[in-house]
Design a protein around this nucleic acid. Sequence first.
DNA 1: GGCATTCATCGACGTTCGTCAATATGCAAA
DNA 2: TTTGCATATTGACGAACGTCGATGAATGCC
Lengths: 111, 111
Amino acid sequence: MPKAKPAADDCCTPTAKVRSRATRPYVPLCKALADETRLEILGMLAERAGMLCACEIEAHFDLSQPTISHHLRILREAGLVSAERRGTWNYYSLERPVVERLGELRALLAD
Amino acid sequence: MPKAKPAADDCCTPTAKVRSRATRPYVPLCKALADETRLEILGMLAERAGMLCACEIEAHFDLSQPTISHHLRILREAGLVSAERRGTWNYYSLERPVVERLGELRALLAD
DNA sequence: GGCATTCATCGACGTTCGTCAATATGCAAA
DNA sequence: TTTGCATATTGACGAACGTCGATGAATGCC
């Protein structure tokens, strides 16, 4: 008699088949948030309700200008911030609707 | 006359000094969530309200057993799940209070 | 005891990521 | 047009990460 799948039926009722919830859409969002510098940039933008000049963001960190620009691009591509050019300067502001998706994920996992 | 800090005073009112909000505590949480496999494990645990046997989690993915074990460890260290040994088997369950911290982060950034 | 099973750990490998210096781009004033 | 400044892009480097095969630790059954 072939025993095939050896066991794994004694530990849990094999009925349910466990369909997972749709979490994939939140992966890029979480990846964008998974960095100390980027989270702090968002914290700055949240504190200052309006916009923030890129130079002011740079001045807040001990990081090079290209590095900050890199992080701002990732936040932009994730939709978490938007940039508005005004002459030479670039003003960044928080995109609250995308931040709200954090609440959706919380509800998806906790409710 | 030294011009020191060249400009950066024409683009934004230099008064505010922009104190960022305390986002650092959420960095480990976001790092733990920033992976498709781990997010889907949490989705499985959310769907099935109770616990889930480790073997059932492994069966859900096309990944090796050590890889799933590795992800489960990261989720455990982040406090997102807890494990309970029952004989040979290991049952994982979701730690909702930690998931709730996603709501805190959302409020910190969006309110 | 001896053996099988479940799960965790280790070591190695390729990939992704954060960082910087150097360079490019775009805009504005002289 | 030329010069200067703000920001983005490129290329390179080391560190961190996801993955696997092999091994180890703990438990239950014969």
